Simulated scan of single mutants.
Amino acid sequence: MNFLFADNKKNFSMSEQLETAWDKLQEKLGGWFDSIIVSLPNFLLAVLVFGVSFFLSGYISKLILKLLHRTKMQRSVKIMISKIVSVVVIVVGLILALGIMNLNKVLTTMLAGAGVAGLAIGLALQGTLSNTFSGIMLSVVDNIKIGDWVSTNDYVGEVVDINLRNTTLKQPDNKYVYIPNKLVVENTLKNFSSTTTAKVILTCGVGYESDLSLVEEVTTNVIKENFNDIPNSEVQFFYTEFGDSSINFELRFWIIAKKQMDINIAKGKAIMLIKSAFDANDINIPFPIRTINFTNPMTIKGNNQPNSNQSDN
């Protein structure tokens, strides 16, 4: 009888516990349902805010891209900036949506995780990000642009492209050089196209028998007659030294040029014109001559002469 009573008591206790657990579960579900009902307006408003920010990001991105097309920035940089603006708008919408739903703890956790992830990505892609920001800087500043003839990092050529990774130069031999943007920003850059004028420097020499006044007059007249793109530009002529075989002079004049090739073409044309003018006026451009003096007289021994070392028979 005692064992039967104990079993009935045990069964009664288990059924009572199950009933209590079920009541607590119903109470918990009811609380959740009440919370959902109460938070439903905020949830709908948060979804609306995020959806509006999502669609607004596309519109703003297109507007930014349209405005950037009026600048001289590279297309790749323009697209990247428009995408960054689009992502910023979406992130702002997400933050507002989480704030409306009172999920401040979730927002704090997301921001902390994004900071850690951003730090890790930044350390891993340090070189790439450096080239990217350098590319943006090169696209914004006026020191260099496509079509300029520049010299940087021991390379000379025409700038044909500036993207998010490197700057492309087309050298005079028609070869392409790809220089990381970071090196272009950090090292010295010489831009030959920053001005529309360039100075051509030419050196030459004339014989010692030449009339130096005539040489100066002929040379300067040739340059003034054939290189008059810049009105009232000065032609500088001055003798520099007494050379081994000639009296040397230096000639300087200005031309309109945007590339180093323009300077080379002008120099070649000037050399041909000066040579023709010198020939017409009997002005000699000497070449080096070396004179050898022998201190001892030279004797030529004939083949039919007997050798002094031979003995007479």
Rank of each mutant, 00 (worst) to 15 (best):
F278T: 03
N181F: 03
I37W: 08
F50C: 12
I95Y: 10
A114M: 15
V222L: 04
S15I: 03
T219I: 06
V89N: 00
S39P: 00
V85K: 08
S53R: 04
Q17P: 05
N104L: 03
S53T: 10
D142S: 15
G51F: 13
Q26I: 10
G205T: 05
K66L: 09
F242T: 15
I64E: 01
I263R: 02
L96C: 13
A112L: 14
K78A: 14
N102T: 09
D148Y: 05
K190N: 12
L138N: 03
S246V: 14
E186F: 10
L107A: 04
D229C: 08
V156R: 01
G243L: 11
T219M: 01
D279C: 00
P180C: 02
V159Y: 02
E217I: 05
L103T: 00
K28A: 14
N284T: 14
W32L: 13
P286M: 08
S245G: 10
K182W: 04
I274L: 07
G147R: 08
I95K: 05
F242H: 14
F294E: 11
K145C: 13
I79L: 11
S82L: 05
N248A: 15
M110K: 03
L123P: 02
S15P: 06
N228A: 12
S245H: 15
D173T: 11
F238H: 11
D173H: 05
A124F: 12
N293S: 04
F227W: 06
W32E: 08
V140D: 03
G30E: 10
I271P: 00
V47C: 15
D148N: 14
D7C: 02
N174I: 11
E16R: 01
N187D: 14
M73W: 10
L273D: 03
N264A: 10
V140T: 12
D282H: 14
K62G: 06
A112C: 09
T108H: 06
S53M: 11
L169H: 06
K269M: 10
N284K: 14
G147V: 13
F249M: 07
I285W: 01
V49F: 08
A120D: 13
Y59V: 15
A97T: 04
V49G: 01
P41C: 07
N228F: 08
T240F: 05
N163W: 02
V218R: 06
I121E: 00
L48A: 15
I162N: 06
I90N: 05
N163A: 07
Y176I: 12
T168F: 04
V140A: 09
V218W: 07
I64T: 05
V106W: 09
K301E: 10
S57V: 02
F43W: 13
E234W: 09
Y208Q: 12
I60E: 01
L44V: 13
K182I: 09
N102D: 14
A117L: 15
V49Q: 05
N191W: 02
N181Q: 08
A120V: 15
